[in-house]
Design a binder for these strands. Structure first.
Lengths: 133, 133
DNA sequence: ATTCTTGCAAACTATTTGCAGAACA
DNA sequence: TGTTCTGCAAATAGTTTGCAAGAAT
């Protein structure tokens, strides 16, 4: 049997913060932000909490290219990100096409419990115009 | 100007080994295998070489869920992966639909120089059947 | 009261880097 | 010969874990 975790100040703080976040954040960023808000939480606890949340499916976890694990709220609908390489501006986009494609591909190969990660990178208009390197 | 790297015994050994590999291997696995074959190569050199190869586009690099970076030969064109969560079996898939969708989304938001990452995860047939939990 | 959780510090893993000597062009 | 490359060891970065003290039920 799976036990529901106890409700503690720390876990509530982490969950609350995550619920407010739009994009992805690393465990360290989340911890830093909590501390900045005046919460007293240990970094290990943040890691442990995020892992638990990810295991239970309440948050999505994904590895960034630099090796950090990023987490994001998973309550709102599934969507992806269009991120500017230069200024990191992020646009949330939905892709029914992609979802369906991914499901179909998985089915064709006899895979179940399908999930996927998708990020699009590019240079946004402002960065192209305004910022010469 | 980009300088072509020098041809050394170590780099040749790494390239040769990668060319022989079918799936993904970590830097450590590649190093271990080279040593096993009798090559004398330092681990750092393997890391540096793989990075260079990845930068120049000669190999694909991808982060595994456990944090290791995996490399594979990149002779064929752009494609994505369908990976089994349980046994890590990987199927290479192509997605013209996705490529087009990504380009269109980016264009709609005035982004240029578009690239994207996409991985699909699931549980493969064998793992579903064979492994009862 | 008992059991789960926290936080610190130390341990770990994968990867990167400084530097002196070796290898290439 | 003048760079570039290598290998070692030490340094990083992110994350995990042991354990004693603190909370939750």
């Amino acid at each position: 049997m799976v036990e529901a975790p106890r409700s503690t100040r720390q876990r509530r703080a982490v969950s609350a913060l995550i619920a407010d976040l739009d994009g992805f954040s690393s465990a360290q960023q989340i911890h830093a932000r909590l501390v900045a808000e005046g919460e007293t939480v240990g970094l290990s606890t943040v890691y442990r909490t995020l892992q638990a949340l990810a295991d239970s499916g309440e948050v999505d976890a994904l590895r960034a290219d630099d090796g950090e694990t990023l987490y994001r709220n998973c309550s709102r609908g599934h969507h992806h990100h269009l991120v500017c390489r230069s200024c990191a501006r992020t646009v949330e986009v939905e892709g029914p096409v992609v979802e369906q494609w991914a499901d179909r591909i998985a089915a064709e190969n006899d895979f179940t419990d399908v999930s996927h990660t998708l990020e699009i990178f590019g240079t946004c208009g402002s960065c192209r115009t305004g910022v010469g390197s």
